[in-house]
Each structure stands twice: as C-alpha cells, then as structure tokens.
C-alpha cells in the first residue's frame, strides 16, 4: 500500500519533469515541415551571434569562478583559523544574495556606478564587464562559500597551518599550495554550480546591456519559433554536463579521501 503511493508520487513527478524535456526536444526537431530534422540546431549553431554571446558568457563564467575562488577561499580559511567568531556574520552576508533579488542588486549598480558617480563603471564597456563580473560573483557567493566551507570543515586547518609555518611557508604559499589543493574538490563543485548559474543568466546581463547568452536566448525566443527549443535543449545539456562533472569530481574526491 505504502509502496503503491510511493510509486505513484514518483511516477507523477517523473512525468512532470520528463514531459517538458520531451516536449522541448520534439519541438526542436519540428523545424522542417512534415519530418523531424536537426535544422533548428543547425540554424542556431550557424548564427554568429550565438557563438559570440555563448563565448562571452563562457568567458564571464570562468572569470566568475576565478574571482569567486580568490575571494572565498582565503576568507573562509582565515575566518576558520583566526576569526571563528566572525563566521555567523560571513555566513549571513553570503546568504544575502539568496534574499535580495538580483534585479534589485543590479538596479543598485546602475544607480551607484553610473557615468556621473565617483566610480563610473557603466561608462565604458570594460567597466561594465567588470561590474557584471562582480554581480555574477555575488550571485555565486552563497554556493561557493558553502562548498568551500564544507571542504574546509573536513580538515584540521589549524594544525596544517602550524605545520606549514614551522617549515617556513608564507601565507601566499600556505593558501596556494596547501589549502587550495586540499579543498579543490569542494572548490570544483562550487565552480561548476557557478558556471551553470552564470552561463544562462539573463537579468543582470540584460540590464547592464552586455552581449551575453541569456539576453541572446530571450531575443531569439521573441523572434523565432523552433530555435528557442533547440537552445533550451543545448542549455539543459550544458547544465546537465556541469552537474555531472561536479558529481564525478566529488565522487573522485570522496574515493581519494577514503583511500588515504
């Protein structure tokens, strides 16, 4: 009886999740009249704007990861080592991006960093790129921090640091050569999550007027019929790829941990 209900819950859930995927794939193949074809994909991939925006977003995603790591790893490490009382504060700050809508944050950027302000970042394309990058790093902050902090919790930060210091290592070397490699698995899982979030991000890129993949998809969706479905399939595949690699890494890291 209980098992019957469980199966029912699972099957209905599976239907809800699989139908849109099937529907999208089916729709993306319908471009040529009367026959299934890959025309929509061909059309998307041949579009120079697709390549340009996708490339831009990949670049932004990678930079976001770098910025996120540089920002979060030393901080999380330092707080665990020297300022444990500060942890709740840091945690609270890293959770804020889940509470304050991204649209509000970017609205603030536009107001704070406009051409007539002290720091006129929106005045130039380069400046706006930096602003968007920082916005993305803010969006990724909750996930990055959680991942790294969990990674740090599995090792004895204090003893490792003292051991390295007794061997004469400086801070840069300790963080770069000791802490980072030890939390690499955690950093990677945070990184792929960030990648998945940034690659299709729409709100910030659209409001800062940057040629990113998210606004491109939206534009295509407003003007074409079948290509958006193909794009959705591609986006889903990218997300799935990120999550798959993330799980693989955490599994490998887990295996390495249990092996040693």
């Amino acid at each position: 009886m209980k098992r019957l209900w469980s199966w029912a819950a699972l099957v209905i859930g599976a239907l809800y999740f699989l139908l849109p995927l099937i529907g999208t794939i089916e729709f993306s193949l319908r471009m040529r009249r009367g026959a299934y074809s890959l025309d929509a994909y061909r059309s998307v991939l041949a579009d120079p704007a697709f390549r340009a925006t996708f490339g831009y977003s990949v670049m932004m995603a990678l930079l976001t990861i770098v910025l996120g790591v540089v920002l979060v790893v030393p901080t999380a490490y330092w707080v665990r080592l020297r300022l444990p009382r500060l942890r709740p504060v840091i945690e609270f700050v890293t959770l804020l991006p889940l509470v304050i809508p991204a649209i509000v944050v970017v609205f603030g950027y536009i107001r704070l960093y406009n051409t007539s302000s002290i720091l006129p970042l929106t005045g130039t394309a380069g400046g706006t790129n930096i602003l968007l990058l920082c916005g993305y790093a803010t969006l990724a902050l909750p996930y990055m921090y959680r991942a790294v902090d969990t990674g740090l919790s599995t090792m004895d930060v204090r003893s490792l640091t003292e051991a390295a210091q007794s061997l004469g290592a400086g801070w840069v070397r300790i963080i770069g050569r000791l802490i980072l490699p030890n939390v690499l698995g955690a950093v990677m899982s945070g990184a792929f999550l960030s990648f998945a979030i940034v690659i299709g991000e729409f709100t910030m890129a659209a409001l800062l007027n940057r040629p990113a993949f998210g606004p491109y998809m939206q534009l295509l969706g407003a003007n074409r019929a079948y290509e958006p479905a193909a794009l959705a399939v591609i986006a889903f595949a990218v997300t799935w790829g990120c999550m798959g690699v993330m799980q693989l890494i955490s599994r490998l890291a887990g295996v390495r941990k249990t092996a040693t």
């Binding site: 999740f17 529907g23 729709f27």
Partner: peptide
C-alpha cells in the same frame, strides 16, 4: 538527486522555452 541538481539550476530563459514547447498553444502536451 542528480536530476534534482540539474533541474533546480535549469531556470531562466531556457525553462520558459521548454514550457512553451510543451504547454504552449502548439506545445507537445
């Protein structure tokens, strides 16, 4: 769990496309 990890991050513009292709006026369902 893997699927949930993917689907919870599958938001934004592509999600809208998926639902248009499924439950839109000419969607599959």
């Amino acid at each position: 769990m893997t699927f949930s990890g993917v689907a919870s991050n599958f938001a934004g513009v592509p999600l809208a496309f998926a639902f248009i292709a499924t439950l839109g006026r000419v969607g599959l369902v």
